[in-house]
Design a protein around this nucleic acid. Structure first.
Lengths: 225, 225
DNA sequence: CCTACCGATCGGTAGG
DNA sequence: CCTACCGATCGGTAGG
């Protein structure tokens, strides 16, 4: 049973909402306590009192961005029953997230990831942890789809390609602001997934080169199993 | 005939070499004149005298990073004769560039692109221009490969996917420092290219779904032509 | 949650 | 290319 939030907690949540937006645009390091305070209509010390240090503010901002992403993208997708449809929903919702955030800094985690890849510390660790969790989620989804007999091949390779597509799209989209890229990304995802489908009639009919079979991991796994 | 560089020109080049490294790690905005001066062993005003403003320094740093990239990646690849082999060489050299820069900030342009996507101005324009030139280069390469009869399908879609793969790999690689991602990226590229090949015996033998044909642009182009 | 302040560093300039 | 300086802003603190 969720406790009724105190006044301080609500203020903190308000600050973080603005912080997520500012950090997405100016970066987690570029986000200064002074400008955050001004944007939220408080004194600098007032904002500071809620976090104690800039690093704590950064950590709280990353967490807030994650909770928001979880609510908008992950949880709704997890409600879908069939494993592969869940993966499709996840991707659809990620692309919708990118579209919504076109004017508010783009994908928070892609930006944070690149900003902190050379700044060791708790913030980097937190970002690394969240992106690792994302990798695990996608890997698990595809693994389950494979166990359900829906897809075949090297699921880790497929996971890598799906993540690259999402991340690469996020980067290109943000600089060009060209929404057509989202359609290309969707097409690329559907196309790539189709190539791993077991059910598609054309797929089973297709002969395969030994090289492609090896890349897919089909032969290797059969040898191991 | 290249003029012998003046002392000032050589100093400027030395400063920019350090600037490219610092900017790749701390960002173009995080790069401060003071720390740059310290890193290069000069006074702050001494460094400043070469550029006049931070913005000019940033522009010069982007240009220096571009010239370096051009030398290491683009020009050697352009020496290759066959259009599609040129594209393969370009990709190979980009992945090698990523591997070399694992400990010096990763892909300069991916980082710069994400850092400046919300900072309008001359620096953003410069970055946008360079990445647009990259898009055009890849598009042209694939277009030529298609005209040579080597590949078929929607070259713009293929170009988008190739760029996404490269950019997405750059982002993931830099946070995880997992070199195995480079192998996955290479495999993904080869695999994707193979699907667009005209020559592969297995390709021509494969039946194709109408949906896939539409996505490829095969039908549409035939209708137009 | 505020006012008032700290030392450090920022981009930039004067003058040589 | 240097020393010496400018106002502004940074993260952070004292005291209430």
């Amino acid at each position: 049973m969720p406790r009724r939030p105190t006044h301080a907690e609500r203020t903190r949540a308000d600050i973080l909402e603005v912080a997520v937006r500012l950090a997405a645009q100016e970066g987690l390091e570029g986000l200064s306590v002074g400008r955050l305070a001004e944007a939220v209509g408080m004194s600098k010390a007032g904002v500071f009192a809620h976090f104690g240090s800039k690093e704590s503010l950064q950590l709280a901002t990353v967490e807030a961005a994650f909770l928001q992403f979880r609510e908008e993208v992950v949880l709704p997708a997890l409600a879908v029953q069939a494993p592969l449809d869940r993966m499709r929903e996840l991707m659809d919702r990620y692309f919708a997230y990118l579209a919504r955030r076109l004017d508010t800094g783009g994908c928070f985690f892609t930006a944070a990831s690149l900003e902190f890849d050379d700044r060791p510390g708790p913030v980097q660790e937190k970002i690394r942890q969240l992106l690792q969790a994302r990798n695990m989620l996608i890997w698990t989804e595809l693994q389950q789809a494979q166990e359900a007999g829906t897809i075949r091949g090297d699921v880790e390779q497929l996971a890598f390609e799906v993540i690259s597509l999402g991340t690469g799209t996020a980067v290109q989209l943000q600089l060009t602001r060209d929404r057509a890229l989202l359609e290309r990304a969707r097409a690329a995802f559907v196309d790539r997934l189709e190539r791993s489908l077991v059910s598609a009639a054309t797929e089973t009919a297709r002969p395969e080169t030994p090289a492609a079979q090896r890349r897919r991991g089909g032969r290797a796994r059969a040898a191991r199993g």
